[in-house]
Amino acid sequence: MDANNYYDAIIIGAGPAGLTAGIYLSRAHIKTLIINEGTIGGQMIFTHEIANYPGLESVSGYQLANTMKKQAKMFGCNIKSNVSIKDVNLNDELKKVVLSDGNIYNSKTIIIASGGRPRSLNAIGEALFKGKGISYCATCDGDFFTNKDIIVVGGGNSALEEAISLTKYVNKITILHQFNHFQAFQHAINEVKNHPKINFMMGSTINEFIGNEKLEKVRVTNLKTGESNYLKIDGVFIFIGYIPNTEFLKGKIDLNEFGEIIVGPGMNTNIKGVYAAGDSIVKLFRQITTAVGDGTIAALSASDYLHKQNAKQ
């Protein structure tokens, strides 16, 4: 074992849950490494304005993420971002994380805080037209679709809210949803139903995105009849929910049928020394405040575990 690559605790994920755990552990002088696949901050950086984080009247997700990162680093936490995990060994007393770049890290305890990501349609051509007609962010790209006709895919709160925010730019919006009803707050449903620029295509899905330099049309299938039609369109915004980032844990830890990590009251998983926190666990409300709370509990449990392990030796 390379001593430089040994940590008392490894945290997987640098969203609010992982960064909070990093702050608590490092402040307790526990040698801690956070390994993060994407940008530090996780889903927080998708949020332009956070108005429900106690103590801060209004803050951008980027600022809050940066402050948490600074705080963790200030206490000595090491953070590696934009790296990817190839394999994990959770069962042994000395845990192992193997990165795709070949680096191997060991630790006595692991906290999984890998959060979630937006679900994609997985339709033909989706990757090809990202940024060329397909978008996942209304506030970022809405103005490119001024006076154009677009589709918003999804039927939850975020799809309906983003559709309303796009009405200030576009000519016409078709909300396309796989079910015949929405899964959103009644006030959001009423707002889209009463909006003159919005119409609906229920019980349908997009199977294919077609175009040359940019998106020109989509193939839409009616899920009841199986009938497909081509629709000329300038843009498609996709908001179809989030999925937990736990694929790399399948078969290694107890997950529920949705791929969420099953935890006990101390954020303990079914494996000794392995804890989980934030959006990747089974829970009712996915918020920054709840992720921060989970991260705190996981860190304190991990710290207690390390203390007991060290006392044994």
Binding site: T39, I40, F46, Y62
Partner: peptide, 16 residues
């Protein structure tokens, strides 16, 4: 770009 969710990750990558 702007200071939004699609741009911030790309700035972060360039910084690294």
């Amino acid at each position: 770009g702007r200071m939004g969710p699609m741009c911030i990750p790309v700035y972060g990558i360039a910084e690294e």
